[in-house]
Design a protein around this nucleic acid. Structure first.
Lengths: 338, 338
DNA sequence: CTGAAAGCGCTAACAC
DNA sequence: GTGTTAGCGCTTTCAG
């Protein structure tokens, strides 16, 4: 420990270790990478020197020499850290196992452009990319793909050349849910927009429309909402003063909670008068009262599977399926009658 | 665009640019770093070549040559992504401005050791460290400090050589709160333990104890709770079947919400019979009903200020104060009477 | 103002 | 088995 601290100024390199052990740097390299047979005896000497000097290989130099950084770029929207918690946990656990570092990039719409992020990802020479994000335009994705860096999309159905995805079939999930409601004769159903998750809201919408279409009906209950959470709340507050519906479907937890509160304030009883379903469940859909019915997806797996797939791609393994569908379970809670 | 995509296989280096522009690589380096005067004319030629080839400097090679990676290691507990959202936003915004990348390390207690994280941080040659974490032991911190990498602690009062911190004076916050309650004659106060935030819970406890001591009383209302959220909930459920208190103070939002739910289930009315305060406010303390009284701190600033301080340290600027205290505001909501 | 060359720390042929 | 050496892509003296 003492030595480590003292030597930390003049950083100990592979040369120092070689000198200390009385071998060449190539040998040191061999033992730290276990890349080649080394006599047991010299190996021990080297290892002792490593410990004595507190040597830690310089990943930057390794990156340059190998043209591999073991860095993964993770791109996420700045807003959704609530959801992303468990996903990150899964991602990071697997990344750790395979010795990858995660470099975090957020797409805060105001502060910077997607292009800047792309720039950064390229410059930092990430070996792979994990994209948990709806917000890239097709054009931007095209550019990103141009660099041919292995990429996996999380929670969005989107693959293509050099890219895989781990997704949840929200379309089917909502389709089936709505079908059940239609079968019960409940048709006054609305879907709340979510500007921050355009692709998945579209999937949801699609599912609802199809369910309606299958019954020979047309769905017209899409509620558009301003972008930020505060006015989303305000908007719903106003909206529910005038409008009543039997089933309200939101994508995000915070929107569903907003609906809950608004209904309470306007004397709309849940689930008797109005039922509420939040597509994406979160810790908080369970914490509020009534608890909110929602689709539970294995978030941790979303992250860990995504990362595992990426490591496979980086490893050059051939990947059969490029789209990995994750299971979901509908959890009916207090916000719905069924 | 086209060219970029095509050339991406044989990566374009500083050499390619030099050749294309008909200058030496040194000159190219000069223009991309604006490090030295270059004739306006050649500069233009170089810039054109850069654009034509879609050249992006290799940060890894730069890192090796400069012995500076522009990478910051961010260490956070794996559990608290809920809180950390805004903090990350602040951190990342500033990091972007100063062109730093954030490498994410999480301290999932089960999966890996702190030592592994330290190892990784060192190997990846991060220029600086941001620590949002209670869970390092003093010994581990000692090792980390041994490497003399500039470091800032977030949300914990802890500085020392080579380290700064941005913190909130929870001790005083809770001290003042409890004093007000004692002045009203309310003494049946309890503090719920939080194993995931040991240092800050200790601060809170300290504040309460001092407030009691100042009134010549002894505080004995510390409620210990098992580690994970589920059993925390279970424990409180059992606990509140038997015990009643006038004021319950928790640190985390989820604990406060658990208390809320438990009270509701046991017919304890809030705030009439029992009042609840959550020290750390979050989006969700406002979303539940009743809303939970709590201390609002500028989370975004916590991150952005922390990052700003770190960039100063990395820049070699002398830093006067090493501890930056952030303001807080007590927001009384529906969970308390006052 | 610009070019040549050394070196950052490490890996991977290629010799011995 | 082990050492020698040529890069990886870039910065930075040092000459010119």
């Amino acid at each position: 420990m003492k030595e480590q601290a003292k030597d930390s100024k003049k950083r100990v390199t592979i040369y120092s270790v070689a000198r200390e052990a009385g071998v060449s740097l190539a040998t040191v390299s061999r033992v730290i990478n276990e890349s080649d047979a080394v006599k047991e005896d010299t190996k021990r000497k080297v290892q002792e020197a490593i410990i004595k000097l507190g040597y830690k290989p310089n990943a930057v130099a390794q990156g340059l020499a190998l043209k591999k950084t073991t860095n993964i770029a993770l791109i996420i929207p700045d807003s959704s850290f609530t959801y992303i918690g468990k996903v990150l946990n899964g991602l990071l656990d697997v990344a750790k196992i395979y010795k990858y570092n995660i470099i975090l990039h957020t797409t805060s719409v105001g502060v910077n452009e997607m292009n800047e992020i792309i720039d950064n990802v390229i410059k930092s020479h990430a070996d792979g990319i994990v994209l948990y994000n709806d917000l890239f335009t097709e054009k931007e994705l095209q550019i990103l793909r141009g660099f041919e860096i292995p990429m996996v999309y999380l929670d969005v159905r989107n693959s293509g050349p050099g890219a895989c995805c781990v997704y949840v079939d929200y379309k089917k999930a909502v389709h089936d849910l709505v079908t059940r409601y239609l079968d019960r004769g409940i048709e006054d159903i609305v879907v709340v927009d979510d500007k921050k998750n355009p692709i998945n809201v579209k999937e949801v919408l699609c599912g609802v429309e199809e369910a309606f279409a299958e019954k020979g009906k047309k769905f017209e209950g899409f509620i558009e909402i301003p972008e930020n959470a505060h006015s989303s709340y305000d908007y719903l507050k106003k909206y529910f003063k005038v409008n009543r519906h039997k089933l309200i479907i939101t994508y995000r937890d915070s929107q569903a909670i907003a609906v809950l509160n608004t209904c309470a304030e306007n004397g709309i009883s849940i689930p008797e008068e109005t039922e509420v379903v939040c597509v994406k469940s979160s810790r908080y859909t369970d914490m509020v009262r009534p608890q909110i019915s929602s689709f539970v997806v294995p978030s941790y797996d979303l992250g860990s599977l995504g990362m595992r797939i990426l490591t496979k791609m980086l490893n050059g393994d051939h990947i059969q399926d490029k789209e990995f569908k994750l299971n979901y379970v509908y959890k009916a809670k207090g916000s719905t009658r069924y």
